Simulated assay, not measured.
Amino acid sequence: MKTGLVTDILSYMPFEEMLDTCRELGIETLELGCGNWSSAPHLDLDGLLESADKRKQLLETIQSRGLEISALNCSGNQLEPTAQGEKHAGVVEKTFKLAGLLGVKTVVMMSGCPSAGPSDTVPNWITHPILPPHFDTLDWQWNEVAFPSWEKAVKVAKNSGVEKIAIENLGFNLVHNPETLLKLRNEVGEMVGMNLDPSHLFWMGGDPIAAARTLGNAIYHVHAKDVRIERGINDVNGLIDVKPMESFADRSWNYVALGYGHSVEYWKEFFTVVKMMGYEGPVVLEMEDLTMDPLTGVKKSMDVLKETLPRDFKQTNSGHYTALAHG
């Protein structure tokens, strides 16, 4: 279980400075944003698709630091029935193609969320279908939009050389928990699995440890990301909170650095259970704690990750961390 980083966190750093920082912190793998919701700060999607020399240079620059690419990320809403949705779908296909050309076997993305019906253009995440029309909406979203779209996406990914599509369990998407992931997987096949991001289950009221046991070998990628439920606010207003993330002092929950929402003991159990389920892939930090600067948040999160992952680390004379054994 190698340590990794969603490099968008250090988007303000030039590419090679970001790589050197990762090496110094003991990060071993990179999850690179390719576009859509990501600004793709460290990767030129079109340029790399067009040039074998640029692809070779990218890989050599990464490998020269002892790093590797664990996944490409093209998270967005490709099911949105607008020009924006078409653009996102195009980035998804390009990301599949680039992953194949780079030899990257895993692509991280979202399932997407359609509109409420064929005449609507606004994505609509149904969370409380108490009236019959909402059941009709869910049926349309899954059967008329999501399943056909994902059947095509799986074919494109396979033809590109991608082996795993890791769908993140983010709210506001059709796939947002194990039940919905398995619903899609049962329809389109085992090319799709979950990018298990515990933070989202926390704010939706779930338990990532129980989710990991349910998912088993459908865990294709893991994000190390924490949430703190804010006492005194959640108790009054509950977990449904539409205030912007920047209003962290008034929200009922917040994304926080690893260990700032749940204890070290919790993370030890979570990572151990994930490994018990057969997962041996990377554990990738995604840090969105707005109460500290990004690099500080990454450093503090890495301290927790090194303490809680079920493997050993050693510190070299140069101050770099390396693994005693990659398990």
Rank of each mutant, 00 (worst) to 15 (best):
H320G: 01
R228W: 08
D293Y: 11
D235S: 08
G261W: 11
D197I: 07
S247R: 12
G112Y: 12
V108D: 14
K314I: 14
K158R: 15
E307F: 01
V273W: 03
V236A: 12
L30Y: 06
L305Y: 06
K164P: 01
T106K: 12
L101K: 11
E80G: 05
M287I: 13
T272H: 13
L45A: 07
S64R: 13
N159L: 13
E187C: 12
A52S: 14
V162N: 07
G100M: 05
N173D: 04
G216A: 09
T291G: 01
W150Y: 15
G103P: 09
V227F: 00
E24Q: 15
M277V: 11
H134D: 15
K94G: 02
L25C: 01
A325I: 13
S149L: 09
K105Y: 01
F202G: 07
P114Q: 07
H176Y: 14
F270Q: 04
P132E: 11
E230A: 10
T21D: 00
I62L: 06
G259L: 05
T127C: 04
N77E: 03
A218S: 15
V264A: 14
T29D: 03
M204S: 14
D197Q: 11
H221G: 08
M302P: 04
G297R: 00
L10D: 02
E86D: 13
G238S: 10
Y266D: 01
E288S: 03
N169S: 05
A157V: 08
N36Y: 03
N173P: 05
D226T: 08
R23T: 08
L196W: 07
K97Y: 10
F147Q: 06
V122T: 15
M18E: 02
V91W: 04
F313V: 03
P132D: 07
L67P: 00
N254R: 10
H134P: 02
S301E: 09
P114N: 08
P244M: 01
G103Q: 10
I167T: 10
L258T: 05
G33N: 06
V162T: 05
G117F: 05
W37S: 13
T29W: 03
P132C: 08
V222N: 04
E31H: 02
Q141A: 13
Y266M: 04
P123Y: 03
S119R: 15
K97C: 12
G189P: 04
P14A: 04
H128P: 00
D8F: 08
Y12I: 01
A323M: 13
M302Y: 07
N124K: 05
S252M: 11
E28L: 07
L131F: 12
L72P: 04
T121S: 14
G103F: 04
G117L: 05
M292K: 12
G297C: 00
L290Q: 08
V188I: 15
M191W: 04
L102V: 08
L48S: 12
A211Q: 09
I9C: 12
A157L: 10
K2F: 13
S160G: 11
E187P: 04
R23W: 02
L25P: 02
F313G: 04
T316Q: 15
E68M: 10
W37Q: 10
M287C: 12
E280G: 08
N195Y: 08
L72Y: 08
E246Q: 13
G112W: 10
G206N: 02
G189S: 10
P294E: 00
A212F: 09
E17I: 06
S119G: 09
E187M: 11
A52K: 13
F248K: 06
K164N: 09
A83C: 01
